[in-house]
Amino acid sequence: MNETLEKRSMGLRASRTISNTLIYIVLVIMSVVWLIPFICIVLQSFRVESTWQVGYVIPQQWGWDNYIALWNSDFKRWYLNTFIIALAVAVLQTVIVLCMSYTLSRFRFKLRDGLMRFMLILGMFPGMLTMIILYRVLKDLGLTQANAVPGLILVYVASSGMGYYVSKGFFDTIPKSLDEAARVDGATRAQVLTKIILPLAKPIVIYTILTAFMAPWGDFVFARYVSFGTSAGMNVAVGMYGWLQLDQIGQKYTMFCAGGVVVAIPVTILFMCLQKYYVEGVTGGAVKG
């Protein structure tokens, strides 16, 4: 009896070892697949002997040439543009999203349900559709081409109130009794927000800032519309997209790789530092729908 039990448990242990080994193999392969493009991009950014696409990865000659070429190109301007946009959007969008989500979470006013339903329906329209008109409006205001930066900030921030879902979900989890207790003690609604709710909402504030800061680095379509071929008004995505088009890829391919590294490093570092908050926000958002 004892022997059979022992045998069974040994069998179990063996099968667990096998399955764990399999999992380790899969995980290692996955990590490699997920990292390969980024390793390649870093390696190719140091390639000196040629600037176009080649079929091998490891450079034959190493050097900083591509980064120096980057420094001497319009890339500086694009980088600065994107950074300014990202910074401004991170601040302003956070304020707007917090106003919106806090209000919809805490106040019960007459048009609240109608407003939320209306915004849900608005969100079903493809945003692409509104670009043409927004472009014309910005053009009338003189905020396109070389002045694209304030124009882009305006558009990103103005429509950001629609993205309140995740942080509203967070505010919903803060017990209402806290508000009520403070109100009994004579605090106004505004004081409740600034003195009690905001300090508790630190994770969601950081999440909102982080996502708002990261989005402009990747925005491509609208930014391309607004800059309209003027290099001074481009962001990194639009500028570097041009380098991979047929007429330029021969000279600019390795520069694109170098540029990609320069863009990715600060964003990635910031993201990894604040990863905890991002994970909380994403998970919470999915659970609440």
Binding site: Y241, A264, T268, Y278
Partner: peptide, 11 residues
């Protein structure tokens, strides 16, 4: 895996 989220999609 998470690191790949941080890198802008256009790159």
């Amino acid at each position: 895996l998470v690191m790949t989220i941080a890198i802008p999609q256009f790159i």
